[in-house]
């Protein structure tokens, strides 16, 4: 029995050594977390970002590179897609209805068989039917906005003008439920002051207020707009004598809309 225990102890020691080496002998590198799916944010994108989004979809969710890659030869290369589109729309074999490069590219995503590049058709169909699935359906199921992003990317890739307009509604609705509820912007400074309960600490204009923060009833007389803006965004940058630093929250920069901030600053600066 003692042999048995010895052998077990020995084996456990060996395993412990291997585990220990894996922990302490080599660095622990945290692998990148799986990529998140893309959300198109309403109006908040530049065309450059939109193209980048298209690329991400092209490489990832769209699974385009599985076939459209330089090695596989399973599908045509797309480096010239935008240029080739013009010729293809004139081709006798073209069966689609596109009038522009953008329309052609969009059509090629949802109706791949409208034009099949010679040699890439489904086996036995004499290049009349494309093996490519409809990118807006099936497992890929790109949304309207995602499809447009891919078109924008393809235009960018082939060096033609990017004519795609960033959709303002289509993509956003797809992901709307993922975004936190947005606060409606305040209409004027008074409403804003009420919403954020500034008077809990400050006297502002004619309104009565608590003594925790400096009196702001005539603040515009002694401070200019730039100072006030900074005081709201970085309350601890310059704390007046007699008041403790760190009392006022430093998070208004994140909570206020830019326009609100300006309204508020203008309102305060006018209190003379």
């Amino acid at each position: 029995m003692s042999h048995f225990l010895k052998v077990v102890a020995f084996s456990l020691l060996v395993i412990a050594f291997f585990t220990g080496f894996s922990f302490f002998g080599v660095p622990q590198i945290e692998p990148a977390p799986p990529p998140k799916e893309e959300a198109v944010e309403r109006g908040a994108m530049t065309i450059e970002q939109f193209v980048a989004l298209g690329k991400k979809i092209f490489d990832g969710k769209g699974a385009c590179t599985l076939c459209h890659n330089p090695v596989g030869g399973r599908a045509p290369a797309l480096e010239r897609a935008g240029i080739a589109a013009v010729e293809r729309m004139k081709d006798a074999r073209y069966r689609g209805a596109a009038k522009s490069v953008e329309e052609y590219l969009y059509e090629s995503l949802v109706k791949p068989s409208a034009y099949v590049v010679a040699g890439f058709g489904k086996a036995g169909t004499n290049d009349t039917e494309s093996p490519m699935p409809d990118a807006s359906a099936g497992s890929i199921r790109l949304s309207e906005a995602e499809l447009r992003a891919v078109v924008a990317y393809l235009q960018d890739l082939s060096g033609v003008e990017v004519t795609v307009r960033i959709p303002t509604d289509a993509g956003a609705t797809a992901k709307a439920q993922d975004k936190p509820a947005q606060r409606a912007p305040a209409k004027n400074a008074e409403e804003l002051i009420a919403q954020f309960a500034c008077t809990a600490c400050h006297k502002i204009g004619a309104q009565a207020g608590g003594p925790i923060g400096p009196d702001l009833s005539r603040i515009g007389a002694s401070r200019d707009a730039a100072y006030l803006r900074r005081a709201i965004l970085e309350p601890n940058a310059d704390v007046p004598k007699g008041f403790a630093p760190g009392v006022m929250p430093a998070t208004y920069g994140e909570q206020l809309y830019a326009r609100e901030l300006e309204v508020l600053v203008a309102y305060l600066a006018a209190l003379k």
């Binding site: 291997f18 585990t19 894996s22 622990q28 692998p31 977390p33 799986p34 699974a63």
Partner: peptide, 23 residues
């Protein structure tokens, strides 16, 4: 590249984590 793992455990474990499971 065909079938995405969407489970909460889709992350790639670190070497130490793996060493524990292997042990």
């Amino acid at each position: 590249n065909v079938f995405r793992d969407a489970s909460p455990d889709a992350f790639t474990p670190t070497l130490g984590y793996a060493a524990n499971v292997v042990s």
